[in-house]
Amino acid sequence: MPNDRLRDALLRNGLTPTQLAAAIDVDPKTVERWITRGRTPYQRHRHAIAAMVRETESYLWPDAVAPERATEIAESEVVKVYPHRNSIPADLWDRLLNDAHEHVEVLSLAALFLVERPSFAKQLATKAKSGAKIRLLFGDPTAAEATKRSQEEQLDKDTVAARIRNALAFVRPLLKVPGVEIRLHGTTLYNSVFRFDDEMIVNTHVYGFPGAHAPALHLRRLSAGDLFETYSESLESVWRDATPYTG
C-alpha cells in the first residue's frame, strides 16, 4: 500500500524523492519504494525524514513502533499533570505563547481565561504577520451543545453561550489578520486542546465540573510519540467539520 502521508509530507515541504534520497544518503529507488510500496525505513532514516518534513514518525509510519515502545514514548511526552487547569502557572501560558513561532491552535468552547488576557489577540496578530499559522476553534453559541454544557455544569442554560460570545468579541479583530482562521464547532468536547508549536495543554472535561477545575496535561511532542499526535488529529477532525466564523 502506498504511503500517502509520506508523499504528502514531501510535497508540502517542497521536497522530491531524489532530494530526500540525497539528504539522507540512500538510493532514490529506495525512497520510491518507501512511498509507492509502503516500505518502512530503518529507524535512523525514519528519524531524519520526520525531522525534515516536520511530522512525527508515528504519523508517517503508524505501525513502525512496537506497542510496548510506543507506551514508553507516550509517558515521556507527558511533561506534567495538573490536578486542575487553574493550577497551571500563568508564566507557563506566557512562555508557551511567547515561544510559539509556527503554530497556535485552540480547540475549546470559550477559553475565556486565555482570550481575555490583555495581550492575547495582539500577540496572535504579531505571530501571524511573522508567518505563524493561527487556528482558533470555539463552540457555536447557538448549538445545542452549548446549552447542554451549561446544564451539565448546573448553570443557567445560556451561560456557556454567553461565555462563547464574550470570547468571540475578544478575537473578532483577528478576522482581518492574514494567517488567522477562526471557526465555530458544535461537537461534544471531551478535551480542550491548546497547541503551541510542539507543546500542548490538554484540558480534560469531567462531567459536572467546569474546565478550570478539571485536570490538564502538559505535553511535548516527540518524533516517535503517539500521544501528542492523537490530540492533534482530534483537533484536525473538529476543524474539518467546523464553520468559518465571519463576525
Results as ranks from 00 to 15, higher is better:
V177S: 11
Y231F: 14
L217M: 13
I164R: 11
L174E: 14
R44C: 02
T16S: 10
A212G: 01
P2C: 09
A9M: 03
A111Q: 12
I134S: 08
H103L: 15
L112P: 12
N13Y: 01
S232K: 15
L184F: 02
A48F: 02
T56F: 04
K29C: 03
T188V: 08
A144V: 05
A21Y: 01
S108I: 08
R46V: 15
K122H: 13
K176W: 09
A167N: 05
P215W: 04
S232E: 15
V26W: 03
Q123K: 08
D25S: 11
N203K: 04
Y207I: 03
I49P: 04
M52T: 13
R54V: 07
H103T: 15
G139H: 02
A74C: 05
L11C: 00
I134W: 00
L97K: 00
R172E: 11
A70W: 08
P210W: 03
D94L: 02
V79W: 01
L15H: 05
F209V: 07
R165W: 05
D140P: 02
T126K: 12
E57I: 13
F194N: 14
F138W: 07
E75F: 08
Y59N: 00
R183L: 09
V177D: 09
L235D: 07
I88E: 09
R85S: 08
E116C: 00
V206H: 02
A70R: 11
S192H: 00
E199M: 10
V81N: 11
A144E: 11
L92F: 00
A144S: 04
E75S: 01
T16L: 04
R37G: 11
P62E: 01
H213Q: 15
G179A: 05
N86P: 03
D25V: 06
A224V: 05
E145M: 07
A64N: 06
D241T: 11
A66T: 09
T16M: 05
F196R: 06
H218N: 05
H185N: 02
R46F: 15
L222A: 02
L112K: 14
T142C: 01
F194G: 10
